[in-house]
């Protein structure tokens, strides 16, 4: 076979992805980096190569407030989801039959296909001053508590988004842990805590970290929970992008925020992958 023979059949299957994702995925992302150097005059973007957008955004205190707030909220969300999900995933992986586990996973995937906006609005109703939780608490003479417009409500929103997915990923990775090794740990006299944290967690490490990373990415980019439940004071980076884009057509400055978000996410993801696949 000649080295330069064109295999039409192979190319037919290979090209659609390459063409589509280059033009409509890589293209936009590269262009977004380019427009961080563009200028806006009279509400129109003009090609240029200026650092002004970077200087304007990165020298503002409010940008860094948002930056660290977003980082903090996403971290908090990741820790909460990982810790809250673990006992449930543990139970589904080790205490439930395969059939129950399959159904549980199926039911946990359902929320992924229901409107996240509507679910957030429901939490708004549940957590409100005269909402369901305060109504129940008032029967016991408690409250009312202010829950909306607090970081607590933001985290509830993030959990709505992430928790089902994290439970699914943790359950699948825990279910793959070799039961013989757990048995062996028991037989060798390891206690409950020691078996879980010394044997099971290290064996399921990759899946647990992947769940955490996905939760981090979702929370980091979400604007619905911090805006509608958290009150957006100060705004997170995603809200900053929306405000900057929609008011005043400042796309270049919004792009600066987006590029900063990407850089942060890439570093977090690489660190996590390194931790997940590192050998002891």
């Amino acid at each position: 076979m000649s080295l330069f023979k064109v295999d039409g059949y192979a190319l037919t299957w290979r090209l659609p992805l390459l063409v589509w994702q280059s033009i409509f995925f890589i293209g936009p992302l590269v262009f977004m980096v380019a427009i961080t150097f563009f200028l806006v005059k009279n509400y129109r973007m003009r090609e240029a190569f200026e650092m002004i957008n970077w200087i304007k955004m990165l020298s503002r205190g409010y940008f860094w407030d948002s930056y660290f707030l977003t980082l903090w909220l996403a971290t908090l969300s990741t820790l909460t989801a990982t810790i809250v999900a673990f006992p449930a995933s543990y139970a589904l992986a080790f205490k439930a039959s395969a059939t129950v586990r399959r159904w549980a996973v199926f039911f946990l995937i359902i929320p992924f296909f229901t409107s996240y906006l509507v679910r957030t609005f429901s939490w708004y109703v549940i957590l409100a001053e005269h909402g369901a939780i305060n109504a129940v608490l008032s029967w016991f003479g408690l409250g009312p508590f202010t829950m909306l417009n607090t970081p607590f409500a933001t985290i509830i929103g993030y959990m709505t988004l992430c928790l089902p997915l994290v439970v699914v990923l943790q359950t699948l990775s825990l279910a793959n842990v070799d039961k013989n090794l757990i048995e062996a740990a028991w037989n060798l006299g390891a206690g409950w805590m020691r078996t879980v944290f010394g044997v099971i967690v290290p064996l399921a490490k990759t899946g647990l970290i992947i769940g955490a990373v996905i939760c981090f990415i979702l929370s980091y980019g979400d604007f619905v929970a911090p805006y509608y439940l958290g009150g957006s004071k100060p705004p997170t980076l995603s809200i900053l992008i929306i405000d900057t884009t929609k008011s005043g057509q400042q796309w270049p400055r919004a792009a600066v925020v987006a590029v900063m978000m990407m850089a942060t996410l890439i570093s977090v993801a690489f660190t996590a992958v390194y931790l997940a696949y590192r050998r002891k």
């Binding site: 390459l18 994702q21 409509f24 890589i26 936009p28 992302l29 990415i217 992008i241 987006a258 978000m261």
Partner: peptide
């Protein structure tokens, strides 16, 4: 090739949204 195929869901939608808006314009 596979990274290109599976990458989109790992990028926050808000970033893709802004990039697409600018690119389509």
């Amino acid at each position: 090739y596979l990274v290109l195929a599976l990458l989109p869901p790992t990028i926050p939608l808000i970033i893709i949204a802004l990039a697409m808006l600018a690119w389509f314009a």
